[in-house]
Amino acid sequence: MIKNGFFNIPESFLVLLTVFISSCLFAQQNDLEPKMQNQFWKNVQFGGGIGLGFGSGYTDISLAPSAIYNFNEYVALGVGAQYKYLKQKDYYASHLYGGSVIGLFNPIPEIQLSAELEQLRVNVNLDGSNSNSQDYWNTGLFIGAGYRSGNATIGGRYNVMTDKNNIYGSAFMPFIRVYF
């Protein structure tokens, strides 16, 4: 305000002080936030598998996403989900779905040891007879080893809980594992 050609000092001072303080408040940055970013997500890697197979009257489609948490350069623990559709023309159609928990150990950067507990629900519909359809749980405990290069590991795993009702053709399975 102008009084007799001069600014009213107390009112002008309060206005300038308010503008200065508010601009300082907006200019404040939390310097701790960039340094203390959530370390959890820096240690998480995502990966999984996609499978597609076709043959003479045979279809195999699978999707298996997974994520692991790296505790350090040697040990990681993760979870995965799995869905698989199998169909043999004029014989059966099957849906398998479930999850798994995996532990990884890298004694040296090139070698990866693994243990994976897998639980799958199996729904089998036999063609021609609904009375022969089956729904059951299948559990597998896989112990594996592989050669690791960067984000990829190639190796083999063995189901130590295999029995005559196993859903897999063999207790031994090769694998390629990739995490980004």
Rank of each mutant, 00 (worst) to 15 (best):
T59W: 00
A93T: 13
A115V: 08
Q88M: 15
D127A: 14
Y91R: 11
G5T: 01
M161I: 00
A64D: 12
G55P: 04
K35N: 11
F172P: 04
F180K: 13
Q39W: 09
L120R: 14
S94M: 14
G48K: 00
Q37H: 10
F54D: 07
S131W: 07
A145R: 02
F105Y: 15
N43V: 02
G51F: 07
G55Y: 03
L117S: 09
L14Q: 13
G47L: 02
K35R: 07
N165E: 12
S12C: 03
T162Q: 15
N166M: 13
G48E: 00
G55L: 05
F71C: 01
S23F: 10
I111K: 04
G49D: 10
Q112P: 01
Q82A: 12
R157P: 04
N123T: 09
C24Y: 12
N151K: 14
Q45K: 15
Q28I: 08
Y179P: 06
F13V: 05
G51Y: 06
I154K: 05
A76Y: 01
G99N: 01
A76C: 04
K3W: 09
P34A: 04
L96T: 06
Y58S: 08
L25I: 11
D90R: 08
L25C: 12
L14S: 10
I154A: 15
S131K: 14
G146Y: 02
L141K: 01
L120V: 08
D60T: 03
Y58L: 13
V124Q: 13
S114Y: 00
N8P: 00
N132Y: 10
N138Q: 15
L16D: 06
Q45G: 10
I21L: 14
F180L: 15
G144M: 02
F20K: 14
D31L: 11
E116S: 06
K164Q: 11
S133Q: 11
P34M: 05
Q45Y: 12
K89I: 07
T139P: 05
V15T: 10
F54S: 11
T18W: 04
A93P: 00
I176C: 05
L77P: 07
T139M: 12
G49T: 06
P174Y: 05
P174M: 06
